[in-house]
Design a binder for these strands. Sequence first.
DNA 1: AAGCAGTCCAACCGCCGCGAT
DNA 2: AATCGCGGCGGTTGGACTGCT
Length: 361
Amino acid sequence: MGRAPCCDKANVKKGPWSPEEDAALKAYIEKNGTGGNWIALPQKIGLKRCGKSCRLRWLNYLRPNIKHGGFTEEEDNIICNLYISIGSRWSIIAAQLPGRTDNDIKNYWNTRLKKKLLGRRKQSNFNAKDTNNGIEENSYSNALSSSALERLQLHMQLQSLQNPFSFYNNPALWPKLHPFQEKIIQSLQSLNDGSNPVVQDALPSPHVEQGQKDEFINKPQHDGAKIHSPQVQLLENIPLSNSGVPFVASESNNNPMHSSLAPRAAAVEQTNNVGFQQLGALQTELDDILNNRTMGYMPQEDHQMAEFDCFREINGSKDSLIWWSNDSDTRSASSNSWDSSTTPALLTQGMFQDYELGYNL
DNA sequence: AAGCAGTCCAACCGCCGCGAT
DNA sequence: AATCGCGGCGGTTGGACTGCT
């Protein structure tokens, strides 16, 4: 069943706002507030606009203390680091940058920051070597560790956990384990019916109390938005470094995931054998890129598109290159690495957090 | 000066989650 | 429990602007 449109589209004006419309909307909201009903707002004001359009105009342009353009290096860092950590959650990223709107940040990322990051990367030996068929896993690992951007790219794929069809949520895509390991996991799962407190304790549990959760979820963001996703809690629980990058837990002994998924995780880690312990180095290199300390980068602008093509080529070669794995039983080629749903190479401590996150959802 | 391509960004679109009924 | 309406969000679009040939 289709949803009724939020407004009469035939009688609604579209396109750029006139100064008169802006003034009317701004004056009304400053005087009366939104009244908790954006849909009814334009009628009250006498604007031939969709309520959603009014809301957007207010939030992105008319609202007081909005900053446009002129992003600082610090803001660049925060945006990039948060993007690496949580993906395209623009509203959350915007919440960390007072005066910035999600739309602004999204545009800024898409038009400038992404290019700033990707564009400076030399078409490195990673590409030169790995576009050949039959990648040898160790050489892949070496190339990977030499390139913060590829790691950045992979780390972004970690965010695909949010996708219910992702690798992590789809056991069919998981690498084969030793039968004994499978048995252990099955035993744990069968015991996890809530009746066994021991196992229950060992399995992941929400890491905030309900009260705290509600408090956070209802906490208004800078633009009045509410955060719905519990994943935000994870972000909130990740301390930021000076440059804004969330720290990834280096010790996971207290992580309940380890008691329940350790066998599989260990096996998976072994299967893939791709070192990813260098998130710190990633951060350093990211800082270098953002601050134009571009050791090893090609400064020439004419390399930029070639570097984009590098990724396009990698990601577009659906059949010729399974670039993240040599396990033919478990591969699931990604057609878009920014959005890939499969990244077994990333089996790090951080991933355990994401496992946990997945359970918490 | 004209045409073209690339860039930027405001605004739109459609989906989703949540609360109300 | 099911349905509906709204707010919120992220992806995409289209037009204005800019730079190059």
